Amino acid sequence: MNHAESKARRMRPQQFHETVGLGDWRVVGEGACAYFRTGSFAVGARFVQAISELPGVGGDHPDVDLRQDGVTVRLITVTDDYYGLTERHVELARQISAAARALGVPADPSAVQTVQVTVDALAGPRVVAFWRALLGYQDRANSGEDLIDPRRRGAPFYFQHMDAPRPQRNRVHVDVWVPYDQAEARIAAALAAGGRLVSDADAPSNWVLADPEGNEACVGVAGPPGPADAV
């Protein structure tokens, strides 16, 4: 596949959410994710085996996390020049969902999320170099401000450029990416637990919250579908 073909096959989160047949899946910052409630490790292992036998699965390399009660699957392309979704993930997602249904395994879209650590950086390249060495991470494609775990297990780090320190603000905060249809409930739960809303200026894609001591965190949503879109 040449560069032009690869670029043409890329998908934005909203495009993915608007595609028919992907109701089990949500894009949550780090690719498209689905959680399947297997109920046991043995059923989960059979489901993972079924995924491994899908045609063409080797070329897309889904990330699969098998636990006692469920399996999380993430679809994302990681190359030297791209980090995101492609059109090929649509058919693979449908096939994985079909394999789950064949085993009687239900999906729970509300259970997926990804977490990112964001660092305010005045001297970006020097700060990034330190964290790259400390974490054993690598640069994300086409970004000098993002580091990712090459084994795709640890939370990614984003280095937010600052022209000057902002007073009364923590320099490191957590971004929690949740499904587009779970953001309101997650924010409400955080507020009920003693948090406060700092800013909703970027809603409905991002909200800034703070805990009772002022430590900030963001809730993010990737590409919610339009009101008339089917899933």
Score class of each variant (00 low, 15 high):
V208H: 01
V172H: 06
W207M: 01
F47L: 06
A32L: 05
A185Q: 07
W25Y: 04
R196V: 00
P227C: 04
V221A: 01
F130S: 04
N142G: 13
G44E: 12
G29V: 05
Y137L: 14
T114K: 09
D149G: 12
A190H: 03
L134Q: 11
D146K: 15
S199I: 00
R9M: 13
G154W: 08
A217P: 06
P106H: 08
V117S: 11
G29D: 06
F159W: 02
S52F: 14
L85T: 03
D65L: 12
E53N: 11
A50T: 09
V208W: 00
Q113L: 13
F47A: 05
Y137H: 14
D146R: 14
A228S: 15
T38I: 00
W177G: 03
V128N: 12
N170F: 08
W207S: 00
F16N: 04
V90N: 06
A185C: 05
A93E: 02
A133L: 13
G39M: 00
G44A: 11
L191R: 02
R9P: 13
L85V: 02
A228F: 12
P225N: 07
D108L: 03
E91C: 08
D200M: 00
L85N: 04
L85C: 05
Q113S: 15
M11H: 04
H173E: 00
A189V: 06
V71M: 03
A129T: 09
R9K: 15
N2C: 13
A228L: 12
G84L: 05
Q138A: 09
I76G: 03
G84S: 06
H89K: 09
G59K: 11
A193L: 01
D60C: 15
P224T: 02
G29C: 07
M1I: 11
M162S: 01
E216H: 02
V48R: 10
R12M: 08
T77Y: 12
A201N: 08
A123E: 14
C218L: 02
P225W: 06
V90M: 08
D80S: 15
G21K: 06
C218P: 01
G223R: 05
A222R: 12
P55C: 08
A98T: 03
V117D: 10
V231E: 14
T77M: 11
L22C: 05
A141W: 05
A99L: 05
F159P: 01
T114G: 09
D202I: 00
D211Q: 06
L147C: 04
A107W: 04
R94V: 00
G84D: 05
A203G: 02
A210M: 10
V112Y: 03
V219T: 02
Q49W: 13
R101Q: 10
L209P: 02
P165N: 07
D149F: 13
P227Y: 01
R166S: 09
F159V: 01
V198R: 00
I187A: 01
R126C: 09
Q168H: 14
S52M: 11
M162R: 04
F157Q: 07
Y35Q: 08
S110F: 10
R169H: 06
M1D: 11
W131V: 10
P167D: 01
R12Q: 07
